[in-house]
Simulated assay, not measured.
Amino acid sequence: MIRVAIVDDDPLVRTALAAIIGTEPGLHVAGEAGDGVDVPALVRDTSPDVVLMDVRMPNIDGIEATRRISGRGQTGTPRVLVLTTFENDSYVYEALHAGAAGFLLKRAEPELLLTAIRMLATTDALLFPEALRRLVRQQSPPRGSTSQHAKLTARETEVLKALARGLTNAEIGAELFLSTETVKTHVGSILAKLGARDRTQAVIYAYESGLIAVGAPGQ
């Protein structure tokens, strides 16, 4: 059972999301909150696997709320899916930097929302890689090479580029003729060298630094 927490200051939005999730087999609405200030307690008390996070809320916004629950290396940390009205929202970009694993437009079809929740809870793939690439291109032009990605080995760079395409560890292993465990080792090394919390932040870094061309689809 995938446990989902809903955070949005609009009670109608929370009700609609709860209705979509609550009737879906294998998903359970673990709890709700109307403001970011309540998110740490909500996560502590309900142990969700995924948090659906609004970004614009009256007291503590979704960016800071995401930062507070995305503690690096902590066991049981939920994955945050930002729900946004505008795809090029700078708030969403900041939330991704704060630790959110992905984002989705509020007007998306319910089936896409359910798919996103399941992906975040059960796979290691990057969520909607093309949407992430477009957001980075809109919000932050590449800054050029930096010392951090100079520390990556050639193999690690290959793995990072595969992560940016949304491949799972198993898919990367098949493509590069590596075992899944070896891919996991490379991913861990990439995150450590780039100082990234997860693969989403690593891919954002790769685009921002110019390691991967942000304007090139499919990379």
Results as ranks from 00 to 15, higher is better:
Val39Trp: 05
Ala41Cys: 00
Leu42Glu: 07
Val43Gln: 03
Asp45Ala: 09
Thr46Asp: 10
Ser47Gly: 00
Pro48Lys: 00
Asp49Met: 00
Val51Arg: 02
Leu52Met: 01
Asp54Thr: 07
Val55Glu: 01
Asn59Glu: 14
Asp61Phe: 01
Gly62Pro: 14
Ile63Pro: 12
Thr66Asp: 04
Thr66Met: 01
Arg67Tyr: 09
Arg67Leu: 05
Gly71Arg: 15
Arg72Tyr: 13
Arg72Thr: 14
Gln74Pro: 03
Thr77His: 10
Thr77Ser: 15
Pro78Gly: 08
Pro78Arg: 02
Arg79Thr: 01
Arg79Ala: 05
Arg79Trp: 07
Val82Gly: 03
Thr84Leu: 08
Thr85Asn: 13
Glu87Ala: 15
Val92Trp: 02
Glu94Val: 03
Ala95Gly: 05
Leu96Gln: 03
Ala98Lys: 04
Ala100Leu: 09
Ala101Tyr: 08
Ala101Thr: 05
Glu109Met: 06
Leu112Tyr: 04
Ile117Gly: 06
Thr122Asp: 10
Thr123Ile: 02
Ala125Pro: 10
Leu126His: 06
Leu126Trp: 06
Pro129Met: 11
Ala131Pro: 15
Arg134Glu: 12
Leu135Lys: 01
Leu135Thr: 05
Val136Trp: 02
Val136Gly: 07
Arg137His: 13
Gln139Thr: 12
Gln139Ile: 10
Ser145His: 12
Gln148Val: 03
Gln148Asn: 07
Leu152Val: 08
Leu152His: 09
Leu152Ile: 07
Thr153Met: 00
Arg155Gly: 08
Arg155Met: 14
Glu156Phe: 07
Val159Met: 04
Lys161Glu: 15
Ala162Lys: 03
Leu163Tyr: 12
Ala164Trp: 08
Arg165Trp: 04
Arg165Asp: 11
Arg165Gly: 14
Gly166Ile: 04
